[in-house]
Design a protein around this nucleic acid. Structure first.
Lengths: 145, 145
DNA sequence: GCTTGCATTAGAGTTCACTCTAAAGTATAT
DNA sequence: ATATACTTTAGAGTGAACTCTAATGCAAGC
């Protein structure tokens, strides 16, 4: 009889390829993030292949969120280092997130300002285009072309 | 008598240093932008020194806005090329700005989503910290420390 | 057993947007 | 005249965040 032993735990573990599909990071990037300390101590099969857990997925999805709001990798590394130290760093981590949240709010504000100026320019262009259309119509009337 | 002839025009022209102060771009970046075609045909003094006009300032400020909303330099180059062709490219330019405006709106939306998830995490951390404070208080009651 | 498609590593290469350097000429102040 | 502070150019260097390569090993299907 072929007895293969799985724990519930192991059944949920993902290869790097699956992990890549789930998180949207390339396998290259997953290894890179591990190398620079953003992801730590990934489990391995006997043959050395990586195995990612549910918790790893959750963590990488969080990293994705930090990246989506533009946090530089250096800060993510600091955050990851705090996280590895355990629960006594929660206050520091909260403060990091609050600070960065503030920065992003500020950036959003500035982008909106600039975007609004761009939108004004779009409106101006629309008016110039109308003006041009009008003059074409006029020319037709005058020149009968 | 020392007769130095200025036109009103020339009096307003800026050296690269002044231009740098006015626009916030370094002199290096001003030359770089010119080299890659973002800024074109800057006037020169007899000695070859650049002289920037009012119109140049307005244009560089516009470039600054495009950069502030994250437009890649390649697209700015396309835009600048259209601008150099003259008024008949206004419709194309308007469309470029509209398209990019749409993209930024989408990005803003996504950043806000992710930021909101981060803010939830901040709240969670605050609760964990309170919990921890409470348990310290309890311990004092129980252990009398 | 062989092919195809995974995995591993160290380290090199890429892209973007600057940023700086070196060598040389010009301008101003004393 | 000399020091300093500016300007010019071509081209090299930087830092961030990947992205890819090469060499090698493991695994599944036929």
């Amino acid at each position: 009889m072929n007895l293969k032993v799985y724990t519930k735990y192991m059944e949920k573990m993902l290869t790097i390829q699956k992990m890549s599909q789930v998180t949207g990071l390339s396998t290259h990037t997953l290894r890179y993030y591990e190398k620079i300390g953003l992801i730590s101590s990934i489990r391995r099969k006997e043959n050395g292949y990586r195995l990612y857990s549910e918790a790893d997925i959750v963590w990488v999805e969080f990293l994705n969120r930090l990246r989506a709001i533009g946090m530089p990798i250096q800060q993510m590394q600091e955050y990851a280092a705090l996280r590895m130290k355990g629960d006594e760093t929660i206050t520091q981590r909260r403060k990091m997130l609050e600070d960065y949240n503030q920065q992003v709010q500020q950036q959003l504000f500035e982008v909106k300002q600039n975007l609004s100026a761009i939108q004004d320019k779009i409106k101006l262009y629309r008016k110039m285009e109308e003006e041009y259309e009008r003059s074409k119509g006029l020319n037709r009337l005058i020149e009968g072309s």
